Amino acid sequence: MGGELIIGRGQGSAIGTLIERTTRYVHLIHLPHGWKAPQVRNALITQTAHIPPQLKKTLTWGQGRELILHEDIEALTGFRIYFCESHPPWQRGTNEHMNGLLRQYLPKGTDLSAHSAHDLREIARQLNQRPRLVLGDRTPSEAKRKCLTSPLTR
């Protein structure tokens, strides 16, 4: 998985994004109490508990200080966390593409704290039901189902 934060107006709010690279399945992380390291750690631990273990092997993140508690996150989630270099966006191509799609729902310069956990689940549901050319016109939900039932992931 790849992950990062989308920052809202005046850096006063944020939403975490997790994108499974093979299936393009997106999880949006609600951060109602801020986006400093303890809040991001707690949100990642609680809001990724439902993700099947075979999809939680690795998490690649940018260089932000919000993941300084990565050892806690690794210990409590099952993710092995890696960090990208800070400037080359091509190392996070899937995340960059998803952020472009997310901006259709969460425009730049807006207050992201206005979106509830329910709102974020609905946005993710819509994105995961959207066919993708890279998936052969399948949806991320379909790709995830196939990935989870494949003999290689059992």
Rank of each mutant, 00 (worst) to 15 (best):
R154W: 11
Q104Y: 03
L152F: 15
K146Q: 15
S113G: 05
L127A: 06
E122F: 06
T58S: 13
G12E: 12
N99P: 00
P32D: 07
P53S: 14
A49F: 07
P140G: 04
E122A: 08
G3C: 10
H118V: 12
H87R: 10
C147H: 14
S113F: 07
E142C: 05
T23Y: 06
P53E: 15
H50T: 11
E96Y: 03
I51D: 04
L152D: 15
D119V: 01
L106Q: 01
T22W: 09
S150Y: 15
H70A: 12
D111T: 03
I6V: 14
R65I: 10
L28Y: 02
I51P: 01
T22V: 14
G62I: 05
L69H: 11
R92I: 00
R145M: 12
E71A: 14
I19G: 04
E20Q: 11
D72T: 12
D111C: 02
I81K: 07
E142T: 07
E74P: 00
T22N: 15
Y82M: 06
P88A: 01
P107G: 06
I7R: 05
T139M: 12
I15W: 06
N99Y: 10
T46W: 13
G64E: 12
G78V: 08
Y105D: 06
G16P: 03
T153F: 13
A117K: 02
K144V: 14
H30I: 01
P151G: 10
R103W: 01
H87I: 06
Q126E: 10
P88M: 04
S13N: 09
H30E: 09
R138V: 00
P89Q: 07
T110F: 10
P140W: 02
C147Y: 14
H50N: 08
Q54R: 08
L152Q: 15
T48W: 14
L5H: 04
I6Y: 06
I73D: 01
A114I: 11
R41K: 13
V26S: 00
G62H: 10
A43C: 03
P131L: 05
I45H: 07
L148F: 11
L59I: 00
G109V: 03
A75C: 09
L135E: 00
L55F: 11
W90C: 11
R132D: 00
R145Q: 15
I123N: 05
A114R: 13
I45N: 07
E96A: 01
I29A: 08
P52A: 13
F79D: 04
L106D: 00
L101Q: 01
S113Y: 03
E74R: 06
Q126Y: 09
L152T: 15
L133F: 15
L152A: 15
G12F: 14
R138Q: 06
H27P: 03
I19Y: 04
S86V: 09
K108L: 04
C84E: 10
R80G: 05
Q54W: 05
H50A: 06
V134N: 11
G100F: 01
K56L: 11
N95A: 01
T48P: 01
R121H: 08
C147K: 13
G93D: 07
R121A: 14
I73G: 00
K36L: 05
L120D: 03
G10A: 13
E71V: 07
Q91M: 08
